[in-house]
Design a protein around this nucleic acid. Structure first.
Lengths: 96, 96
DNA sequence: ATAAAGTAGTTTATTTTATAAACCAAATTT
DNA sequence: AAATTTGGTTTATAAAATAAACTACTTTAT
């Protein structure tokens, strides 16, 4: 009946990050901050958790002289996201 | 782009409660506990929060000699649930 | 009749999570 | 060269979720 919701994805900010990354090849820290409206600290922490779980890939490089953190979703991340969405359906019905 | 998710509803257990109550005229505490698999303590707390918010109506009566708590969703609750579901679409709606 | 166990919850304490505030290093602007 | 901005991380605090303990009966067994 009611499926379990992956707690790592059932968080507004982490879900937002995944939602953005799933529809884009990659996105950098600044873009994610702008799109989500999150504070840098919160974003940093949540990106870390998603990376820890293997849901996203985080690459640190430079854009000229400025540091640049680029994130992209992994296969595992896509799978987890899809499963989460599927589980959600059991709560909110056929509306999707 | 990404809508805000009502934090009161963005909780697995509270969402489960609302999800059940929206499709049923009323449900008692025991039924909700069975369907959600939650502990009584957790359920009690979350029911309280939903009631506090005016999303559900809680009636305490007796079933013979046993206490019986019956819950039903309010109009306000239905509206909030629908808005939450709608907001969710902004996260999972594209490509799904 | 009474002790033990079960039911239906609530209250309180603990753990976990989310968020914000403070900080750092380098780059840019004034 | 001092102040500000950029791109973050770390640490502290607030909020939430969960579990454990407790209350107030009722039912069952002795």
């Amino acid at each position: 009946m009611l499926r379990e919701l992956n707690p790592l994805l059932h968080s507004e900010l982490r879900l937002a990050i995944m939602s953005i990354l799933i529809s884009v090849e990659s996105a950098d820290f600044v873009y994610l901050r702008e799109q989500t409206g999150a504070t840098a600290g919160n974003l940093s922490v949540q990106i870390d958790k998603l990376q820890q779980a293997g849901y996203i890939l985080v690459e640190k490089g430079f854009n000229g002289k400025k540091p640049r953190t680029t994130c992209s979703i992994t296969e595992q991340g896509v799978a987890a996201f899809e499963e989460y969405v599927d589980a959600l359906r059991s709560y909110i019905g056929k509306g999707f």
